[in-house]
Amino acid sequence: MTQSFPPATIGYGFSHAHLLGIDPLKPGEIAYLLDRAAYFAELEPGEAPDALAGSTVINLFFENSTRTRSSFEIAAQRLGADVVNMDVATSSVKKGETLIDTADTLNAMRPDFLVVRHGQAGAVKLLSRKLDAHVLNGGDGKHEHPTQALADALTIRRHKGKIDGLTVAICGDIRHSRVARSNLLLLQKMGARVRLIGPPTLLPNSYEALGVEVYHRMDEGLRDVDIVMMLRLQVERMAGTLIPSGREFFRFYGLDRDRLALAKPDALVMHPGPMNRGVEIASDIADDLDQSVIREQVEMGVAVRMACFEALATRRAPTTLRAA
């Protein structure tokens, strides 16, 4: 399957010390990561190369997470790394330690990789400046969540054979979504057309400056799209009153059969999870194995995280990677 995607010729490979976001990556680097991930996805769990043997990975999650943290943990273990989960909720951070002091402390333990999730945009970048380890962004505030975007891209590529030329609608709570931000950056870099759909309070018009099409009505935005990407309504981030209620949101922005019929007949339905059934997506669509690839996104999550670990571990120069 991998072979059907000819490697992009420019900048194919990966040469960053950290994976902080999609923004710094070139199309060739994204293609490289996706190719490697596609390879890992075909392997049985025991067959993976032990590219991380002898390495230590610290999962440092300042925000709660089950799926992302487990996914990073499994990916690192399949490549032979030792994984330590730092439970920040009970650590010195709660006792008032600053982020910089935490970085110094962790540095002294000499980990090889640090996977960080933090509630504030830019915090992962700040940590990466102070650490000798490779830092992977597991989500920073409302900024980026690069590995989720890579998992989504791989899922799309497995089904559509390409990303270039597709029309993708990202729907719902755009404003609070780091997943949406990373996805729109990645999809645009790889040649897809991106539409954003959501109520004006959750989708400010300023997003038009990012080169996307902004829609405030599902019926207009979903027409003839190849991919429908739903987002979780992040009720916990809505300090103010951004939408009146869950049921009103579902009435106008939820994905049901009638709305999905507006998209192309073979459109894929995606959701980064966790889902609020009946708020942004109808249960029967979420469970429809013909159209929904939600479970596959999770599976691909492990594969792309393996690819990211491997790419950082080897940090191969772009020119030596053609044969990969």
Binding site: G122, K142, H143, E144, R181, P204, S206, Y207, A209, L210
Partner: peptide
């Protein structure tokens, strides 16, 4: 700030 940079950086505008 408002506008593009806030949207790009995931910060409140």
């Amino acid at each position: 700030i408002g506008g593009e940079l806030a949207a790009r950086m995931g910060l409140g505008g």
